[in-house]
Amino acid sequence: MTVALIDTSTANIASVRYALTRLNAPYVLARTPADATGCDRLILPGVGAAGAAMKTLDASGWSDALRAERRPVLGLCLGMQLLFDWSAESGCGLLGLIPGRIERLDPGAAGPWPHMGWNALEEFRDGELLLEGLSPGERVYFVHGFYAPLGDHTVASASYGQRVTAIARRGKVAGCQFHPERSAGVGARILSNFLKGEAS
């Protein structure tokens, strides 16, 4: 079992690699779809702005490949947002694997923008593989200024002025708005749930 870590050339690649190493999960850094040939699941990491990340994915061939992908995919942080249709951040189209739009988060009186820190996971959808062994109220580390509003895709949420999609899923495509690689034991559990889940 090998994970393809899609190389979006963004800064959190190292933390995701180290998290996989701590879980004893073999991975390859996949700059192009061809690099992921022998892998049975994919992780799409990412930090930074949506527009720049989409340009990288378009140039490497990953945009087209992901739209035709049949293996399980897990997007992390910006990587989760890229799975949706459109982002208000750069006013740009995204991968379109999960219907919905990414909007700017308005925290209101909840605190400063962006949403940064440890927040509670809530409203678990029954049977969600990534949440196995976890309970509502457990905290994970968020850093984001844009968000996916709740929808059919929401399998866990968090609250920061708005109800925020914390984990999204549509079929084999899933994503975490937070950083499981920086979310201590809870994050490690979510990653290991993804790694042990059914592959293609």
Binding site: A14, S15, Y18, A19, T21, R22, Y141, V143, H179, E181, R182, S183, A184, G185, G187, A188
Partner: peptide, 11 residues
Amino acid sequence: VGRVAQVIDIP
């Protein structure tokens, strides 16, 4: 920095 990043799982 790299050695720390390998060991810890918080930001």
